[in-house]
Design a binder for these strands. Structure first.
Length: 151
DNA sequence: GCCAACGTTGGC
DNA sequence: GCCAACGTTGGC
């Protein structure tokens, strides 16, 4: 079992939206970055758990936890010309982008702000703090434990 | 809204 | 394959 962090803009899709799915799977789609894509496609597995991170909003930080319920499959939006995630270079035979399904696990009693994560010595090597722009990233067991304690 | 960091595109 | 120009992410 591995741990991940998934970024989302809460104005688009928040931890509350995920909670509102009442346990049904939510496709984590729209990932259009190769590094993130490779992690999704090659490493994220059913049963893994992920921190849900709220980005590009008033209160940035970690909002809760989701579990992976389906491993990588072709993101259908890449084939849909109506979608903003449409990719003319992708084809059904040769998909370029992938998504996974996640289910809601829990919402933290409070959002753990990015500023606090930055202050935590044990999190100094966290990918989130080292590499700004990666929307799917690995979290170590130690980091996971520490963040759950902060929540 | 600004701007730093970084990813992508495209000419050569 | 290099690199300049440009676009996007994302915190503040």
């Amino acid at each position: 079992m591995a741990y991940w962090l998934l970024k989302t803009e809460p104005d688009e899709f928040s931890i509350d939206d995920l909670a509102g799915r009442n346990g049904s799977p939510e496709p984590w789609n729209g990932i259009r970055n190769y590094q993130a894509r490779n992690i999704l496609r090659d490493q994220v597995s059913v049963g893994d758990e992920a921190l849900i991170y709220h980005s590009s909003c008033k209160q940035v930080g970690i909002a809760g936890i989701a579990a992976v319920s389906r491993a990588a499959y072709a993101d259908p939006d890449q084939f849909n010309p109506e979608s903003k995630y449409f990719d003319p270079k992708a084809s059904e035979n040769d998909p370029r982008w992938f998504c996974v399904d996640v289910v809601f696990k829990r919402k933290f009693p409070r959002l753990v702000p990015l500023a606090e994560l930055k202050r935590q010595a044990g999190l100094a090597n966290m990918v989130l703090l080292r590499q700004g722009r990666l929307s799917v990233q690995a979290v170590t067991a130690e980091e996971w434990k520490l963040i759950l304690q902060m929540a």
